[in-house]
Design a protein around this nucleic acid. Structure first.
Lengths: 212, 212
DNA sequence: CGAAACGTTGACCGTTTTCAATTACAGTGG
DNA sequence: CCACTGTAATTGAAAACGGTCAACGTTTCG
């Protein structure tokens, strides 16, 4: 679910340029002509869109092993900034090369579609998260979404302040929400880990009826 | 922008099964083996993930004209429930058929990828909208997004109350925002139409440093 | 060691949500 | 054709909630 670069790794024999990017610097900027798609080799890249009022929103965070700007394959200009979160190394593969290979290789194209489908899921989930008004509930839902691997556990790989931005809340609200959730016993925190003890009497609602 | 089923419509000659689903019933359930991908013809389908603790989160709401479960093309089991929000009609296209066609036809596969990439962009745009806190500004931004065809005009195909939900606001807030925008002269309303007289250009801020 | 982030908490303020009530309007059936 | 019913549109008032500003302890990293 996380290695959306699978398809790009399978793309052998293309020109690749290795780039080192310092924390805070940009790989590309919103509006620039699309020249390449990228894969993160080390570090983290944040895709953000700048708004008129000066604020910026995080569209996606690409980690080591992931590709980013796949959508650029179908666009002339990048529609967001790609900023290195930390010191990062990326690999750039020329757009034209990728297009040529995709048109020739349905298997590769399917891999790309797979990666994009995963991204759609991911972004939709985040959108629905925003529908939750209450900060406490939103934080809780976010935690539950993250708790993919070990069921009741979430380990953060970046500061809460970054997570807060991703959730669309101020960091203060997030801290308050966390404090509230903890005092109320819904979560426990240790270090940069959060534990979600499954409620005992978790009423597993009856399954909806299946039509067919 | 709304017809994420475009590629599926282009997929001619496949078996299609029409299903009628009552409000509250399921098209498929989380964990079930994937048999088909779907397109909503009428009504609304809610995709939800059930969590261990008994809670559920909404991943997406698919409306008429949209495809859903495209990601199922790449999975053995559905990873979420598909529940009819209202009385709904959907079309089911067997997964195997779609896969076969995609593997044989790189062009179609690229179309799928393109459609998925467009969806990513679309959902991200809506995500961006949610970052605008002010109800007035958000409504205005939404209107500007909609004004695709005739530049300064938006025609609604559904009640404001539905639009409000989509924007993540209460309908009351939306009405107030509209009233405020109108009295302030930013918009004009007639029937279910909204007119946006153009305004002067917005200033662009300084760009971050570009690394290359 | 010092500076810059991060984490945390308090108080206040503004906006949106909520609750409530009223009008407009479209569809239904007598 | 017209009451009748339900949904949509609209507005008001109060409450709740998150944002903002502020202050301070803590950790991280050069």
């Amino acid at each position: 679910m996380r290695q959306s670069a699978g398809w790009i790794e399978a793309l052998t024999g293309t020109n690749r340029t290795r780039l080192s990017v310092r924390a805070g610097e940009a790989v590309f900027l919103q509006g620039a002509a699309v020249t390449a798609v990228y894969a993160v080799k080390r570090g983290r890249v944040r895709l953000t869109r700048r708004l008129e009022d000066g604020s910026a929103i995080v569209l996606h965070v690409a980690r080591a092993g992931e590709a980013f700007a796949e959508a650029a394959l179908f666009a002339d200009h990048y529609h967001c900034d790609a900023l290195a979160d930390t010191d990062t190394e990326v690999e750039a593969i020329p757009k034209a090369d990728v297009r040529a290979r995709l048109e020739a290789d349905p298997g590769l194209c399917l891999d790309l579609a797979r990666a994009l489908a995963a991204q759609v899921r991911d972004v939709r989930a985040r959108l629905e998260l925003r529908n939750i008004r209450s900060a406490r509930e939103r934080v809780l839902a976010w935690l539950r979404l993250q708790a993919g691997r070990v069921p009741g556990e979430v380990e953060l790989d970046r500061p809460w302040t970054a997570v807060a931005a991703e959730m669309g809340l101020t960091h203060e609200s997030v801290y308050r929400a966390l404090a509230s959730l903890e005092s109320q016993g819904t979560i426990r925190r240790k270090r940069n880990r959060v534990y979600l003890p499954g409620r005992a009497g978790a009423p597993s609602r009856d399954r909806p009826t299946l039509s067919i």
